[in-house]
Design a binder for these strands. Structure first.
Lengths: 249, 249
DNA sequence: CGGACTGTTGATCGGTATCAATGCTCGTGG
DNA sequence: CCACGAGCATTGATACCGATCAACAGTCCG
């Protein structure tokens, strides 16, 4: 895992993410605590392992900038991408509350992470219920996303799944300012996407071709464009849930 | 939804689940609070809807007795069983912390549920960090299970998936005393199981036949028996994780 | 320039879905 | 008591979706 220091760490009360209206505000008191809870920042290169299955990291992270993905593999190498992670997402909550990490997190792009001490999590619950509540909110939210993916992989066809995941990823990226005007700079290759859908890269290529031929999306050179959102949403049986006001860190 | 009162509600400090060694103990103080937090009990018939997608229940439940399952469907009726739920499992945390329920919970057997008031959840976080931590633990744990299912459905073949789910369900049932000696009284039919695996009931029938022919399992008349655990675990690439000490309610 | 990696396309194979028929259990009502 | 129908599991025949194997093109990088 390569890593390096970039710019000076940002104090939580000046966190750039706070300016986005998709995030809820914290009270003065909580912010003050965050300043001490935050232990530093970590910048990792694309492809770097942030958290490793089976190994107990002493840290907990929030993504400040960049993309990552959570994944899990079988003994013979078959890999499932469980979800993508974006700024504001919490990484390593499982190891913090259960001492047990059952998946790996890897950076997709260069990423900047807020670092928290795992052993101070109990302090959060004791002294800062608002933050503890936010953590639980995050866990419940992630569970909701996973429920959606499970439905997708279990019941949708490859074409429907691809449509669904494109819409899902776009929506989340847009919420943190990583996409706009139905256009997204994709930080992942088709290999990652295929592993998230549970299909082969070869078949994904053919599936995307169909979406392209039907004028629904375009995906060339990392640039993913939603050309016909209504028809894509219909194909995916996608129900846009208006984004909930979401807590940060 | 049919429901009726059965026996008198059990006070939390005499909760029968506490006797099982798979559950962690609560402190005196937390137990005292639980007594007031618990609002009553609800007994539901098999097939009854406990929590409905999109509708905000004012309650939060813990299963005391019986089986339930969480599921989610597409508009055209295709259904995915997300997970099964057993005694000790918390239902409705999402609606409690996010005001948003995105899946349905249905009873498989007659089930007895502890009823809690959703609007007192904030009190839990404010005044009872130990309980709040337990809730977060539950959410993180459920997320872990979902990660496992996602890997399974995305990457395993139907045969492997069936083997995996049988082992998974058995293990959880055993932990709460619902199974023993590799034998389980199955509360679900093949339809439920197929929907959990993301395959057709017809194909599940054929898949089970193969497992039967190889002498791995037997499933007749609701009685599910694991005949050759080592080979079944190998087929499923199942890694038994020693059960974590788990918090209750 | 050459090699690695990623994505595309073609040919073929296999796993799972679909359609359909049968048997079975069980609850209901004649 | 038996007749009946509903729901579930099994089995067979066939269709199709997605996997696999293979060849090739494009890009990046040493």
């Amino acid at each position: 895992m390569r890593s390096r220091r970039a710019t000076a760490p940002v104090p939580c009360d000046q966190c750039p993410l706070r300016e986005r209206r998709s995030f809820r505000n914290l009270s003065e008191g909580e912010l003050a605590f965050m300043l001490s809870f935050k232990r530093g920042e970590l910048v990792v290169a694309p492809g770097a392992t942030i958290l490793l299955e089976e190994s107990a990291s002493p840290h907990l992270y929030t993504i400040l900038e960049g993309w990552a993905f959570r994944h899990k593999s079988l003994a013979d190498g078959r890999r499932q991408v469980l979800n993508f992670a974006l700024p504001g997402d919490l990484l390593g909550l499982q190891v913090a509350v259960m001492n047990d990490m059952q998946h790996t997190v890897t950076a997709l792009t260069e990423a900047r992470l807020c670092v928290f001490q795992r052993d101070k999590v109990w302090t959060v619950f004791e002294d800062h219920p608002e933050l503890a509540f936010a953590m639980t909110w995050m866990a419940a939210h992630e569970e909701q996303l996973l429920d959606g993916h499970l439905l997708s992989i279990g019941q949708r066809s490859a074409l429907e799944r691809a449509a669904y995941l494109i819409l899902h990823v776009y929506e989340r990226a847009e919420a943190v300012g990583y996409a706009d005007h139905d256009e997204l700079q994709a930080p992942f290759g088709q290999g990652h996407f295929a592993d998230a859908l549970g299909i082969t890269p070869v078949h994904l290529s053919r599936t995307l071709k169909k979406l392209r031929e039907q004028g629904l999306v375009q995906w060339r050179d990392d640039c993913l464009v939603i050309l016909d959102r209504p028809r894509l949403e219909e194909l995916a049986a996608y129900e846009r849930t208006e984004p909930l006001p979401r807590p940060l860190i």
